[in-house]
Design a protein around this nucleic acid. Structure first.
Lengths: 113, 113
DNA sequence: TCCGCTACCATGCGACACAAGGTACCTGCC
DNA sequence: GGCAGGTACCTTGTGTCGCATGGTAGCGGA
């Protein structure tokens, strides 16, 4: 699809926190995140995007990891949000809503004008 | 503000169409756009961002330009959306709404989980 | 042996930020 | 009238950073 390029730009800055949101509950591993995001409209990504992102989150202390054996296949590294991660997610959510409101207002004004 | 960095990322991909939305009605010139965007939460930019962006829009045929004398100061280059630009804006608006819905859903699930 | 799952790295692109430079117009002063 | 300085406006170059692309490597099952 041609329009995919638009989403590539839109994902910037949000993908990081979408991943963080997915890691709030049960711990998940990288490949699982790719599959989960792939089911959401406009958030499709690949491992090449997810792993550097997860590494960054870990470096910043927003997620913590643990290895677990898999029933089928190589062991998996599970990621889980830290308290700091949850806090960062809450802060982003507020910013995101403000931003959306601004953009919606501008787009709306364009439809009128 | 520290949180400004977040908005820098969020602006990517949307700023282009916010400008296009502002150019739907009356033609505007670059400096005017900078001031208009500066009043909107999360969309503050500078000339260094706007002019390359406008140049790109012009290259893609989404806006057209004309010079006009100014009452005070140097002549201004006015930008105005083409029919193709309006069409692109409509397409983006649809994509944007889908994207917002997806992100909202993910963030919401993170708050529950 | 081949293929799928899983993790990870190297490289590149593209959009926006930052900052400086340049030109045109106006105003005030002499 | 004409010069100096300030402001409006446009342009350009360099930097930054997140995501994409493509590739490597190891393990395990068919």
């Amino acid at each position: 699809m041609v329009a995919e390029k638009v989403f590539t730009q839109l994902r910037r800055g949000t993908l990081e926190f979408c991943v963080l949101a997915l890691l709030q509950g049960e711990p998940r591993y990288g490949f699982e995140l790719v599959k989960a995001l792939g089911e959401v409209d406009g958030l499709v990504t690949t491992e090449g995007t997810i792993y550097p992102l997860l590494a960054r989150l870990r470096r910043e202390g927003l997620v913590e990891t643990s290895w677990r054996e898999s029933e089928s296949g190589p062991p998996r590294r599970y990621y889980k949000s830290t308290a700091e991660g949850s806090q960062a997610l809450a802060a982003f959510t507020a910013d995101w809503q403000r931003f959306c409101a601004s953009v919606d207002a501008i787009l709306e004004s364009g439809r009128r004008g």
